[in-house]
Design a protein around this nucleic acid. Structure first.
Lengths: 207, 207
DNA sequence: GTCTATAATTTGATAGAC
DNA sequence: GTCTATCAAATTATAGAC
């Protein structure tokens, strides 16, 4: 018995959070209006300030929650104990699943980090969750020495893996336009990529 | 004799454009302040409005110029008449060079498109420059049939190529932080990618 | 063309009734 | 907790002198 709510109706706080999430992630922090959020939540501005003192506090709450969906999965591949190819498959599948649900996620997070890196580093990201890529990079080194995969700079391979997985979601509007692709077709392609990306990587590095 | 300017000092209009470009691309449209731009240009706000009627007009001027640096190169690979592997190398090298000079470029463009796709499609992108990927996709099909490269969905390969090339620049702040990488090291890695990416792709698809 | 001063508008935030 | 009304601050835009 985890959830106590018996009603389907959300609490005011939850309505605000859902509305704020929608407005902030689609418009960005600077362009988001407190009035937009109030309208979206079906309440008035004063109530926003009652629950969350000001716009910055509300934004931080949302951003932190979204960043937690985005980053821990990168961490995961660094921590996970598994054979290399299995790790790659798992990483790609998890990320694609997350982003098919929340396609706005990477662009929102990357953009806000870019606009205010210091705030992000100091206030948002606690030192406890600092990712440690060393283990994964060492695993790559070790596989190269064993001769399982061809010689390649581990850092480059890591970048390739992350780029292949995340970028299409960052560039969705561009892709659907440049390639004249309906949203449904795009979503199908993303689903296929859970297989396509690991295949592409492994075909490139396996000896 | 292309450039007529004999003085090193820029015209007021050029100073404004340079300042606006810097402020818009680093802060984004919504967070950019006319005062910031005036300060950066070393003039006052009134003069901004004298040269460009309002913020929207100024922004459109900047965005259009930046988008033109970003998109035509995608178009290039669609139009170019060359063997496949050569095309890939050329595409990657051109893009990486452009983005090493303007690392902010892809995130700025993709973000503003995302925040207002209709404005972008209707006002900014003329139908004349509409990219036509068909030729490139057909070339891939043809190479697969010839047996030069393994079976792969052309659309997926195209996405892979673009993702590998552009994403690191979108995610620079994340990479330099997560991988604890000084800016100089990042720039070195990007230079290497001009070779690394074509190698990575070709190793994956060549038969 | 360029400036100072100021108007007009937008927007975040608060006071106070219910 | 929730609302209406209002204030205060920030920001775009203009008027008018030089």
């Amino acid at each position: 018995m985890v959830k106590k709510k018996k009603q389907q109706t959300l609490s005011t706080e939850d309505k605000i959070l859902a509305a704020a999430r929608k407005v902030f992630t689609t418009k960005g922090k600077a362009a988001a209006r407190m009035q937009d959020i109030a309208d979206e939540a079906g309440i008035n501005k004063a109530l926003l300030h009652y629950y969350f003192r000001d716009k910055n506090k509300l934004f931080d709450t949302i951003f932190l929650a979204e960043a937690k969906k985005f980053f821990p999965r990168i961490n995961m591949i660094f921590e996970l104990e598994a054979p290399l190819f299995e790790k790659i498959e798992k990483f790609v599948a998890e990320y694609v699943d997350e982003m098919r649900i929340n396609p706005y996620l990477p662009l929102f997070v990357l953009n806000e980090i870019n606009h205010d890196p210091k705030r992000f580093l100091q206030k948002i990201w606690g030192k406890g969750t600092m990712p440690k890529p060393e283990k994964f990079l060492q695993q790559l080194d070790s596989e190269i020495k064993k001769g399982t995969i061809r010689k390649i700079q581990p850092m480059q391979l890591l970048m390739n893996m992350i780029s292949l997985t995340i970028f299409p979601f960052v560039a969705e509007p561009m892709f659907t336009y440049v390639l004249r692709m309906p949203d449904k077709k795009f979503d199908e392609l993303m689903e296929q990529r859970k297989v396509e990306i690991p295949q592409f990587i492994i075909a490139s590095i396996k000896k």
